[in-house]
Design a protein around this nucleic acid. Structure first.
Length: 848
RNA sequence: GCGAAAGUGGCGGAACUGGCAGACGCGCCAGACUUAGGAUCUGGUACCCGAGAGGGUAUGGGGGUUCGAGUCCCUCCUUUCGCACCA
């Protein structure tokens, strides 16, 4: 008799795995590979059970695939650069390097105590110069290809702290530290030309069949491709400054009765100068620009605008139309100017009604004119053109083609495609990130750092003041450099890269994490990639996953990889809530895995988190549920404890056809194989890990019932009493069947509960460890039931059940059903209209 | 507002291709074993009527297709998530 003491098992097996480097792998062309990856972690200090759920999901997959014969790569690392560490340094004076390394050490310990089967030999952190060197290398390759470029762009600026703020440091429009309202400043910054891949990133989403549709939809919306046309409106009396607009509805251009400019539009400034009251003009523009930041968050912003006093010429009607500045027109999208067609656009309609601007109906459902006064709202549907000169009578789609073609002939526009996706601004005026490897020379301009001088290492910094722009600009030894081209005095770029750069290719590095000559060896990446199973939070549905898809294409075009999509299958795991809210330190509702481990061991926690709900679903944490999983493991433990001696040394070969088995033995055997089938499919095909666990629970329940029936004493009725420990009355067949069941159970359970599984496997007398053991084989002929129960419905209600051979024919079933006494009480005196037989499932009788 | 997903016992959730709704677990009730049990084992547990056998009603509401609907179609309601003036 031995008690279930999971803490001892955790320690024992974790030590063994570490000592034998059990989960390290090498490329092996003779075996199918499986690259299982969970999104790496930001080392915040402590992992809570919400984070940990993701690692457990991945670990169940990895361990299962290993047992299924795959060569499994299951690595882990740290997304270690980022703002929180730097903020902490500003507040508390601890250098980011120090706090980050400390946090990594602690979290690594947490994951190891959970028994996650990582190839720790491959671990790295993005703040390792050996890693970020290759960020810099890749940046230079992108610069060479025109994929990295520099332009002016605005940043958040706190006038009080005199520093640049990241978006997440702007809280309710104010600075995170002092609350001062944030201003906008224009700085020269670096961008990645992701828009060059917009079409490809969009089109290829259809090939991602193993991604959640939700994520693909979000990505498609993010890219936001829209087909339309650019059209030029000349300025009345000033042909040198035309206004270009983008529209998806050129078919409605005869209804364009005014033009709207974004407050940021380049023309606005000169229009202000020319206006009758430049000061008031500018004041209004400034007010609109300020709205963007603060008002946008606080709900619906009312549409506002004012007349610039100038007019533009509608190039199709040749009529002058007023030009207004409007707060709802976006400066960054399209051309920053729109033609307003109030009759056919809701926003324009609202605006026109508010400011009493003219409305012209130019598209109607049937081609018959409609008075503008009759409109209750904008008519946005396609239809037939009216009052549109030579285009009247054409359907919208046809008109769009012809009008775009005519615009092109006349040199006033053309059909074009517009994206919502913008180029990726990667400059960060921060310390704790990858230095951008560029040098500015008065003579040679922008010069990349030569490859052989990489990495550009972050200089140690004594003090973090949180003032000024880029912290690196305050380190003279870092800034002053000689120009690689002319050898003269030059200065370094002092911005660092967005940390999303780090996370956009780390999954390649895991294939070859110590390479000193290249970001990775293409041959190794060719073997391991793409990632077969990638899991992480939905919060990365857009940015991380789209940037990674972008980087994969860049690597492909550089010639380092031969695929376009880095992740074959994506699983977005749901969050773990506590008291109905996401766990967070500030809310004080964090469930610490270590506390749970001390009480119940790693396996109970792992099992519970897998059992409570399907992986994608959000779940509410429950201590009672965890307790239940612990009880289940103890129940399995007692079962194995009771049988291990009997079964351990036994060598019983079960016949394929179970002729010599009695009914109970055959039933147990059937259950065993049915369980293998269900668990395997639930893990591999459906990733429905909760039902895999319940299938195993059913088998355990059956094993208890079986022991109860067939063996005196029962398995654990009296764990403390000197109950006979097997070997008494058992038939060889019984032992064989139980042994098969227990082995299947322990094997299928071990990905979920690896420590308990390994120990029980050992106790069952197995020579190899459970992690190396082969997954149990499913035998369909054993799993098939000989006898089945078929319900019989009369007019849709179940009235009887037939116990028949599984081979019973449809005719047989119909005959038996109609002859059944219970059925006859409902059919007697009535006419049987119809009998439907679903073989093996059900008989449905219709009477009248 | 637009888009997507989801609504099943007291709770978490099952139900694979349209075929016995509620697997499995939690909780609760009872029994056994016990000095004791918050351990363990066994049984019960959707709701209503009925002593019982049994009957009826149930998968957010309403309608439809079908021998048969949690599952498919239409419509409405609610919740969650995403996008939120993208012209």
């Amino acid at each position: 008799m031995s008690d279930y003491r999971p803490q001892d098992l955790d320690r024992k097996w974790q030590q063994r795995w570490a000592a034998s480097r059990a989960f390290e792998v090498t490329e092996d062309p003779s075996r199918p590979k499986f690259y299982c990856l969970e999104m790496f972690a930001y080392p915040s200090g402590h992992a809570h059970v919400g984070h940990v759920r993701n690692y457990i999901i991945g670990d169940v997959m990895a361990r299962t695939k290993r047992m299924r014969g795959y060569n499994v790569l299951h690595p882990f690392g740290w997304d270690a650069f980022g703002l929180p560490a730097e903020n902490a340094a500003i507040k508390g004076g601890i250098h980011p390097e120090v706090s980050t390394r400390g946090n990594i050490a602690h979290m690594k310990g947490q994951l190891q105590r959970l028994g996650i089967s990582y190839a720790w030999e491959r671990e790295f952190a993005t703040c390792d110069p050996e890693y970020y060197k290759w960020n810099q290398w890749l940046f230079i390759r992108m610069f060479e290809r025109g994929l990295a470029y520099r332009r002016r762009s605005s940043v958040n600026w706190c006038p009080s702290c005199r520093t640049v703020l990241a978006n997440e440091q702007v809280v309710d429009g104010g600075c995170w530290r002092c609350g001062t309202p944030v201003e906008t400043r224009d700085l020269e910054q670096w961008f990645f030309r992701i828009t060059a891949y917009a079409d490809e990133l969009l089109d290829d989403t259809v090939a991602l069949t193993r991604w959640p549709e939700k994520v693909l939809t979000m990505q498609r919306n993010w890219i936001g491709r829209s087909e339309g046309a650019r059209v030029t409106f000349a300025m009345e009396g000033n042909p040198s400054t035309p206004i270009e607009v983008f529209t998806t509805r050129i078919d409605t251009i005869y209804g364009a009765t005014f033009v709207l400019l974004a407050p940021e539009h380049p023309l606005v400034s000169s229009l202000a100068d020319a206006s009758t009251d430049p000061a008031s003009f500018r004041r209004q523009v400034q007010a609109f620009r300020a709205q963007d930041r603060a008002a946008r968050m606080s709900g619906a912003v009312e549409k506002q605008g004012f007349d610039t006093g100038v007019r533009a010429i509608n190039p199709f009607t040749d009529q002058p139309v007023p030009v207004w500045v409007a707060n709802f027109v976006l400066g960054e999208y399209g051309t920053g100017a729109v033609m307003a067609v109030p009759a056919h656009d809701e926003r324009d309609f609202e605006f026109a009604r508010k400011f009493d601007l003219p409305i012209r109906v130019v598209v109607t459902p049937d081609g018959r004119p409609v008075a503008a006064d009759a409109l209750a709202g904008a008519a946005v549907a396609y239809g037939t053109l009216v009052d549109s000169g030579p285009y009247s009578g054409l359907p919208s789609a046809e008109a769009q083609k012809r009008m775009a073609a005519v615009a092109r002939e006349r040199g006033i526009g053309e059909a074009t495609i517009q994206y919502r996706l913008k180029d990726w601004g990667i400059s960060r005026q921060r310390y704790w990130g990858t230095p951008i490897p560029m040098i500015y020379c008065d003579k040679d301009g922008i010069v990349p750092v030569p490859d052989d001088q990489l990495p550009v290492v972050l200089p140690p910094m004594a003090q973090f003041t949180g003032r000024g722009d880029s912290p690196l600009a305050q380190v003279p030894e870092f800034v002053h450099v000689t120009c690689p081209a002319c050898g003269g005095a030059a200065r370094r770029e002092t911005d660092t890269m967005d940390t999303f750069v780090d996370s956009s290719w780390y999954f390649y590095r895991f294939a070859d994490p110590r390479n000193e000559r290249m970001p990775f060896d293409p041959a190794r990446v060719k073997y391991w990639l793409p990632v077969d199973f990638y899991s992480g939070g939905v919060e990365h549905a857009i940015l991380h996953l789209i940037y990674s898809r972008f980087f994969a294409r860049v690597f492909r075009d550089i010639g380092l990889v031969d695929h376009s999509e880095p992740f074959s299958q994506l699983l977005t795991q749901g969050m773990v809530l506590k008291d109905g809210a996401v766990m967070s330190k500030s809310k004080g509702n964090v469930v610490d895995p270590d506390t749970m481990l001390q009480q119940y061991g790693a396996d109970a926690l792992r099992l519970y988190v897998m059992f409570v709900a399907p992986p994608e679903k959000e779940v509410e944490w429950s201590d009672a549920g965890l307790e239940g999983s612990f009880r289940f493991l103890a129940r399995v433990w007692r079962l194995v404890d009771r049988w291990c001696e009997t079964v351990g040394g036994a060598d019983v070969v079960l016949p394929d056809a179970g002729d010599s088995l009695n009914a109970a033995e055959r039933a147990l055997r059937r259950k065993t194989h049915e369980t293998i089938r269900r668990v395997t499919a639930d893990i591999e095909e459906r990733q429905q890990l909760n039902t895999a666990v319940s299938a195993m629970m059913e088998l355990v329940n059956d094993l208890y019932a079986f022991s109860e029936q067939t063996v005196t004493g029962g398995p654990a009725r009296r764990p403390d009493a000197a109950a006979p420990r097997g070997g008494v009355a058992e038939r060889r067949e019984t032992i064989g069947v139980v042994r098969e069941a227990l082995e299947a159970l322990v094997l299928t359970l071990s990905p979920f509960a690896p420590h308990t599984g390994a120990e029980m496997w050992e106790r069952l007398g197995q020579a190899v460890t459970v992690a190396e053991a082969a997954w149990p084989a499913y035998n369909p002929s054993v799993a098939r039931a000989e006898e089945i129960v078929v319900p019989v419905q009369v007019n849709g209600k179940v009235r009887s059940r037939l116990t028949v051979s599984a081979q019973a024919s449809e005719q047989e079933l119909e005959r038996l059903a109609l002859a059944d006494p219970a059925v006859r009480t409902y059919t007697s005196g009535k006419t049987v209209r119809k009998v439907v037989v679903a073989r093996g499932r059900l008989v449905s009788v219709v009477v009248q």
